[in-house]
């Protein structure tokens, strides 16, 4: 469905120098598939997202969606692409227009893509969508500021999913949330994927969340994908040294594991 085909991107770094941000990235997301992209800060995660969404043009290679070149498409194709591929942002405080009510926010996609032509039809769809993300009808007339972070992220998901996209790109969707709220949003994304057959590209630094949500995983190190495989391959038998190092560093909420690892590191030269 989404094909990221050998894209590279570099940015000017002053004095005529260029920094390679993405180096020959190949990544596909098929219909209904959940793909995780793991990387530390500065690994090029956000540039991949921007390229995949057609917001940043790669220097070479191409990004295509169902055969359409995302960066060289007609107006008609672009509109279809905008309907089929949606994004959930990291920060639920900045990703919702503070001056729009929940109803306006969630129905905007329906309006823009003319999926429901009457106000009543749109409202019905919005209410149905809100119920799906666990919010009641009373939310319709309220503004984002009166919701908690977790609720806002549900609204953001509702806004993205209401137009029934085929692919949802998630940019660290739970890292800004309280620990006890993260699971709610992770479960919601899981449900959405199952119920709607949604493809998910889940971009995060948190390996644990990626393991939980994604069946295919790619590991990004400084603009290169160093490991790419099924969840079991990447997590249980990692091949690349970088993946191994990352996995060893992920905190595990089990004192025995934590102490054993520290002992191992301290005994090693």
């Amino acid at each position: 469905m989404l094909q990221i085909d050998h894209i590279s991107k570099s940015f000017p770094a002053g004095r005529g120098q260029h920094t390679m941000v993405l180096d020959d990235i190949v990544l596909n997301v098929d219909e209904g598939q959940s793909v995780g992209l793991v990387g530390e800060s500065g690994s090029g995660k956000s540039t991949i997202i921007r390229c995949a969404l057609g917001l940043t043009r790669p220097d070479s290679g191409r990004v295509s969606y169902s055969g359409i070149d995302v960066h060289r498409s007609s107006r008609f194709d672009t509109l279809r692409f905008r309907r089929d591929v949606q994004l959930v942002f990291q920060d639920p405080y900045a990703s919702l227009n503070p001056r729009m009510t929940v109803e306006e926010l969630v129905s905007e996609g329906l309006l823009v893509h003319k999926l429901e032509t009457t106000a009543a039809g749109r409202r019905a769809r919005v209410v149905e969508m809100l119920a799906m993300v666990g919010l009641g009808e009373e939310a319709l007339t309220r503004y984002p500021r009166s919701f908690s972070g977790g609720q806002r992220q549900r609204i953001a998901i509702a806004r993205a999913v209401v137009i029934r996209p085929k692919l949802l790109i998630c940019d660290e969707p739970v890292s800004a949330l309280d620990v006890s709220v993260q699971a709610q949003v992770i479960n919601l994304l899981q449900d959405m994927q199952k119920q709607l057959g949604l493809g998910i590209l889940f971009v995060a630094h948190d390996l644990a969340v990626v393991r939980h949500l994604c069946t295919t995983v790619a590991v990004l190190e400084r603009g290169r994908i160093v490991e790419h495989g099924t969840r079991e391959q990447v997590f249980d038998t990692p091949q690349h040294a970088y993946t191994q190092a990352l996995l060893k560093a992920v905190p595990i909420p089990d004192p025995a594991v934590g102490r054993a690892r520290r002992a191992e590191r301290q005994l090693a030269p």
């Binding site: 969404l53 917001l55 672009t78 509109l79 905008r82 309907r83 591929v85 949606q86 994004l87 942002f89 920060d91 900045a94 990703s95 919702l96 227009n97 503070p98 729009m100 905007e108 996609g109 823009v112 893509h113 953001a156 806004r159 993205a160 137009i163």
Partner: peptide, 21 residues
């Protein structure tokens, strides 16, 4: 702002983007 970027990703027209967001 991310919410403006979000509106663009949603396919909002330029006029609406300006007037509404």
């Amino acid at each position: 702002q991310p919410f403006v970027e979000g509106a663009r990703i949603l396919g909002v027209s330029r006029t609406r983007l300006m007037l509404k967001h």
